[in-house]
Design a protein around this nucleic acid. Structure first.
Lengths: 321, 321
DNA sequence: CACCAAAATTGACTTTTGTCAGCGGTCGTG
DNA sequence: CACGACCGCTGACAAAAGTCAATTTTGGTG
């Protein structure tokens, strides 16, 4: 990402201020501009990722409960957001998740991103960074629904924050017939995108519920009735727009066959898979995802952590092999 | 690195302030402490690396001259510090070098560090970071001289800044006889340390001059006369306390044989080798180091960059294979 | 348990930073 | 070339952050 001439002055101001520790008035003097401009440039520098301010997430992994969940569920790392003893409890999980995400990203990475309110909330609070050679790929097809959290928006917003290249999926998430979905999957452009998913270094997604509140229902991919029927047939959660059963396997149903989305095996091929779960009612979907080995890194709040641990201790837990 | 209970509050304050964007008074209210304490905790958070503020060094690599030097000398990356058009020109190279260094370090790295005024200056301006599982190893033996920039100090200071483990070398840099040096090198403790050098992921050093101003002379490892004699025998630079010739090979001399330091082949085995050169009179030593393939990454100031480029263009340059 | 020294915390004050209306220059357009 | 819309910069004021001497708390000791 080449620096445009207009960025030069921003960069220079940021350098003098943050790297050399000069005060704004000294920087202003140095560059022969007003201090107000310096303040403006510095804000710009932070907003473009020229300057990076990050806070360690150690505190949230450095916890016996996190360790126990890691052991019980065979995860690489777990972060637990404390219960809302502060101003904005709802923001805690997304803020933590975005920090964790930024810690996991490396230069040159290829990152798979799914969608949903949680994913968008993370993107929304994510700090700007100027990572070189990062590509953000959309893990599933699109939806026309006018929601900010739809697949292409999630991908684009995260790409924008990281100053990365966004690779959108130019296909609908769900089609009306299985045949059409199959044909579309065989289209070179789509096939290529699907094939590229397993090459990702990092993935970010949440796991959706299978009720009327589900994002796939809200966005019109499924009717409430259809979802109810699927639930009776064993649907337990939603991953990248697809329905999984309680073992974390793809549910054998028409809907899934009509979906254009990441193959679960491709997802599991991604070495670091960050799953973030926020809402209370996502306990069962999360268990399904964990059973399917869809997560390696997990961010949850304290209440959910408690339930996970109790569940594991009750002996009810067994991961699918 | 486990978080001590006293750090909890620091971490929490930093989290609310930097991750959530609350103001200091809001954080104070949240934690039931005074705003003055919050300010203090935040400073502590920055000083411990719980909070990381870094500035992109893009501006200094994003330059035609840097590209040309990379091509001419076969380096992976070059950074050029602008000439001192600001308050503290002498600080420019160390500040830049420390930022570059921090960009190159990754979690879990093993880092080799040599010594000298330049290296110490870099350590001195380096931001604090809280890197997990990082080890900083000393590349050569010690000197008793009362200088801040002696080998153990350089290693320790950098380890302290990174919150890493420092592995010091418990042997003198130079001994009075070759036999003793050989015997000492065969001591298990020393042998192990020397063997561990090639396992490093990153190295940081400068290249010293071979005159009376050389740090090896100032620290008493060599007399001015001895150094003069070595120069007549082809000494061109100093790397990790050892004398190299103009081709970047170890000079065949008694002094080198009496040294306990990193084998040049071990240094070259380190994948990323950051060389930082600051002083004007280090041009020839730098050329020697480059000829010996001792650098992969280079930080110099504008004047030095100019000279390097002119030298390469004059056709005088040829790297040893 | 009273005492002291050292460390942590605070209130009050100073310095630094953020903000925004308004000014002045620039560029495209009629 | 005159006009107006737009953009970036600045001065002045408001808000926030930094600092430090004074005070309280803590932890160890006789």
């Amino acid at each position: 990402m080449a620096i445009r001439p207009a960025d030069q002055i921003v960069h220079k101001a940021a350098w003098l201020y943050y790297a050399h520790g000069l005060r704004q008035d000294q920087v202003a003097q140095q560059l022969n501009i007003s201090r107000a401009s310096v303040a403006m440039y510095l804000r710009k520098a932070r907003e473009t990722g020229i300057v990076n301010i990050s806070t360690s997430t150690q505190l949230f992994t450095d916890d016996v409960m996190a360790r126990e969940i890691e052991d019980a569920y065979g995860l690489d790392a777990v972060w637990i957001a404390p219960h809302g003893d502060h101003v904005d409890p709802a923001a805690e999980v997304p803020v933590l998740a975005s920090s964790v995400f930024l810690e996991l990203v490396k230069k040159g990475d290829r990152i798979g991103v799914a969608w949903g309110q949680t994913v968008y909330a993370i993107a929304d609070v994510m700090a700007y960074a100027d990572l070189q050679d990062v590509t953000v790929v959309q893990l599933c097809g699109n939806l026309g629904a006018p929601f900010a959290y739809r697949p292409d928006q999630c991908t684009m917003e995260i790409a924008r924050r990281l100053n990365a290249k966004g690779l959108n999926f130019y296909a609908p998430l769900v089609l009306s017939t299985e045949g059409l979905a199959k044909q579309l999957r065989d289209e070179p452009v789509i096939r290529e995108q699907l094939a590229g998913i397993s090459d990702c270094d990092l993935a970010l997604y949440s796991i959706g519920t299978v009720d009327g509140e589900s994002h796939v229902v809200k966005c019109g991919a499924l009717t409430v009735e259809a979802m109810d029927a699927l639930r009776r047939d064993g649907a337990a959660g939603v991953v990248a727009g697809q329905i999984i059963d309680s073992k974390g396997a793809l549910l054998d149903c028409s809907y899934n066959r009509r979906c254009i989305s990441a193959d679960l095996a491709s997802l599991r091929a991604i070495p670091r898979r960050l799953v973030v779960v926020q809402e209370e009612n996502k306990f069962d979907p999360l268990l399904a995802g964990l059973a399917g080995g869809l997560a390696t890194h997990l961010v949850v709040n304290h209440a959910m952590a408690r339930r996970l641990l109790d569940h594991a201790r009750s002996g009810a837990w067994r991961k699918a092999s």
